[in-house]
Design a protein around this nucleic acid. Structure first.
Ligand SMILES: NC(=O)c1ccc[n+]([C@@H]2O[C@H](COP(=O)([O-])OP(=O)(O)OC[C@H]3O[C@@H](n4cnc5c(N)ncnc54)[C@H](O)[C@@H]3O)[C@@H](O)[C@H]2O)c1
Ligand SMILES: NC(=O)c1ccc[n+]([C@@H]2O[C@H](COP(=O)([O-])OP(=O)(O)OC[C@H]3O[C@@H](n4cnc5c(N)ncnc54)[C@H](O)[C@@H]3O)[C@@H](O)[C@H]2O)c1
Lengths: 211, 211
DNA sequence: AGTAGCTTGTGAACGATTTCACAAGCCTAT
DNA sequence: ATAGGCTTGTGAAATCGTTCACAAGCTACT
C-alpha cells in the first residue's frame, strides 16, 4: 500500500466502506474471490470505478482472477484505519442518543461506545444496554482517562456548539453530529453532520421534479 | 422560476435545504434581507456558490441589495416542493424507528408521519407520541387510504428488501432507508440510504490519515 | 441627473471526479 | 509452450461541479 500523498475524495472513502460491507457478505457466503465487476454490481457503480478507487492505495488484485475476498477485506480495513477499535463517546442520551448507544451495528464494526453523557440529572444513571448514562460534568475527566477518539452529538441544536467546543478542548479530533445546527470547528478537527430533514427534503425535491 | 430542464446536482439540492434553514434563522432574528455572502458564511460555502445554486432555478435577488429573506424562503420552499406537507410512513418501530416517529424536526418541516408499522405483535398498539404502532399487515390498505409519498425504513437489514418491494408495489416513489443493506429499486423510484457506520468509518479514515 | 458603492447573475476557466479503453498479466486447456 | 479468455491497473478523455471575474443593475446621496 503506498502512502497516499494525494488527497483522496470523500466519495472514494465512502465507496470503500460500501465495498467492505459487500466483501463481508461475499465472505459470509463462502466466496473466495471477487471481480471488480461483481463488487460494482453490488454497490451500484462501475467496475472501472472500483478499480480506480483501489488504485489510489495500491494494487490488490490478480489480473485474470480478481481480488481475494479475505485479503481485500484486510486491505480496505487497513486503508480505513479499522484494524484497531475506535472508542466513541455519545453526548445526549435522548431518543436518538439512546438508540445509537445501543446500536449493535457500531460495535460490530469496531466502534465501541465507552460513554454516554447527558446534562439532565433525571437521565443520569439510566441504563442503556450495558452502559449507564453519565453526568455531562464527568465528560472531561472521562476523556482524559479513556481517550475516546470520536464524539457523537445527539443534543438539541442550540446545545451543540458549546459541546463541540468542549470535546475539541478535551482533545477529540472527529465529531459526528445529528443536531441540525451549523457548527464551527478549528482546523484539524473533522466534523460530519447528518441532517435527516435534509435527506427527506432531497426526496421531496426528487418527487416534485420527477417527470 | 424556470422549469429546470437541466439535471440539478444533488449537492445543489442539499445546499438549498441548508440555505433554507439559515434563512429561517435570519427571519426569526428579524433580518429582512440577506446577501449571498452572508448566506455563504453561515453555510460554509462561497457567495458565488450560493448565487450559482439559485441561478439554476431563476433570479431571486436584487442587485446591490441582496435577497429578501421572506421571498427567498418562499422560493426555496417552492423549489424543494415544500409548499405542501408530505405524508410519511415509518416501517420498523424499534429503537431508531421510534426515535424518528417522535422527531419534531420532521413535523416542523412539513413531513407528517401518518403511520408507523411493525411486524412484531408485541410492538403493535404501542403508543409513540400521538401515534400507535400498526401491524405491518395494515400497510397496503393504509397506503391506499392515506397516500403517503415517502417511506422511511428502520427495519433490520435482512428485512429491508422485501419491505422496499412492498412499498414500491403499493405505489410509493421515495424511500429513506437506515438499514445497512444494498437495496434495489426500479427506475422511477428514488432511494436514499443513510449509513451511520459509514459516517464513522469516514471519520476513522480522516483520523488515520491526518498528518 | 450623475456618481459612488454594493451585490446579483452568469459565461468562462478551472479543478475534481468519473468513465473509457487498452496494454499487461494471470490461469486453464491443449 | 502457446493460445484463448478474463480481469486488473492506469493514462487519457470526458463529464461534472466549483470558482472566478465582471457587466449589469439597484439604492442612496449630492
Ligand atoms: N429523534 C430523532 O429521530 C432525530 C433525528 C435526527 C436528528 N435528531 C436531532 O438529534 C438531537 C437529539 O434529538 P432527540 O430526539 O434525541 O431529542 P431528545 O430531546 O430526546 O434528547 C436530547 C437529549 O439531550 C440532552 N441534552 C440537552 N442539552 C444537553 C447538553 N448541553 N449536554 C448534554 N445533553 C444535553 C437532553 O437532556 C436530552 O436527553 C436533536 O438535535 C435533534 O434535532 C433527532
Ligand atoms: N439503532 C440505531 O441507532 C441505528 C442506527 C443506524 C441504523 N440502524 C438500522 O436501523 C434498523 C433498525 O435498527 P434498530 O436499532 O431500531 O433495531 P430494532 O431491533 O430496535 O428495531 C427493528 C424493528 O423492526 C421490526 N421488524 C423486523 N422485521 C420487520 C419487518 N419485516 N417489517 C416491519 N418491522 C420489522 C422489529 O420488530 C423491530 O421492532 C437496522 O437496520 C439498523 O441497522 C439503527
Amino acid at each position: 500500500m503506498h502512502s497516499p500523498l494525494k488527497h483522496i475524495a470523500e466519495s472514494t472513502v465512502r465507496r470503500l466502506s460500501l465495498y467492505l460491507r459487500f466483501l463481508e457478505e461475499f465472505e459470509a457466503r463462502g466466496q473466495s474471490t471477487v471481480s471488480s465487476g461483481e463488487l460494482a454490481r453490488s454497490g451500484g457503480t462501475t467496475s472501472a470505478q472500483v478499480r480506480k478507487d483501489l488504485s489510489f492505495f495500491g494494487s490488490f488484485g490478480k489480473r485474470g482472477l480478481g481480488y481475494d475476498v479475505k485479503d481485500l477485506i484486510a486491505s480496505i480495513r487497513e486503508i480505513l484505519g479499522l484494524e484497531h477499535p475506535w472508542p466513541v463517546v455519545i453526548i445526549g442520551a435522548g431518543k436518538i442518543g439512546a438508540a445509537l448507544a445501543q446500536y449493535r451495528g457500531f460495535t460490530s464494526r469496531g466502534f465501541h461506545v465507552v460513554g454516554v453523557y447527558d446534562s439532565d440529572p433525571a437521565k443520569v444513571g439510566n441504563a442503556l444496554g450495558a452502559l449507564q448514562v453519565r453526568a455531562l460534568t464527568d465528560l472531561e475527566a472521562d476523556i482524559a482517562q479513556h481517550h475516546p477518539r470520536i464524539a457523537v452529538l445527539a443534543v438539541p441544536a442550540e446545545a451543540a456548539q458549546p459541546i463541540v467546543d468542549r470535546v475539541v478542548a478535551a482533545g477529540l479530533r472527529a465529531i459526528l453530529s445529528f443536531a441540525p445546527a451549523p457548527l464551527l470547528v478549528p482546523a484539524g478537527v473533522t466534523l460530519r453532520a447528518v441532517n435527516m430533514a435534509t435527506e427527506l427534503e432531497i426526496l421531496a425535491y426528487s418527487l416534485t421534479h420527477a417527470e
